[in-house]
């Protein structure tokens, strides 16, 4: 893949978005931000990112509802959950709904790198 990976990150925490943006940009990704699930759905439809990184606990529309809508609208777009709410139930629920991975907060750089690689492989596979 010879262009930058365009990723949408959705988290209500400004601090997390700032840190994650820096992390992703260091991995040569272009980053779009959303503050909640509603904004994530709209930006996913309008900006057509290569992948989405989604928090669960967010105001207005939460991450699980956003995942459901994104999977319906863009079933081929890989979604990685990044949340503090990583109970086995939430993990199973989101993976069954089509998320490709679940990262428990606080994340490590290694986990983000691995998630980016997973998204990149999906994008290359989907052509």
């Amino acid at each position: 893949m010879d262009r930058k990976l365009k990723l949408l990150i959705s988290d209500d925490s400004k601090l997390l978005r700032k840190k994650l943006r820096a992390e992703l940009e260091s991995l040569d990704c272009e980053v779009i931000e959303a503050e909640n699930g509603k904004e994530a759905i709209l930006k996913e439809m309008n900006e057509k990112p290569d992948g989405v990184i989604l928090d669960i606990v967010m105001p207005e529309v939460g991450g699980i509802e956003a995942l459901q809508v994104i999977r319906e609208v863009s079933p081929e777009v890989p979604v990685v959950m990044l949340s503090s709410a990583g109970t086995p139930q939430k993990l199973m629920q989101t993976l069954k709904m089509g998320a490709i991975d679940f990262i428990q907060k606080p994340y490590t750089s290694e986990q983000i790198k691995k998630a980016v690689e997973q998204i990149r492989k999906r994008v290359e596979k989907n052509g």
Binding site: S13, V57, S84, A85, G86, T87, P88, Q104
Partner: peptide
Amino acid sequence: NVVNGVFSIQEAEKDKELDLE
């Protein structure tokens, strides 16, 4: 949020499910 997330996982190990707001 991070502390409470870990707490909810610990409680899940005791079969207590918690949702974070």
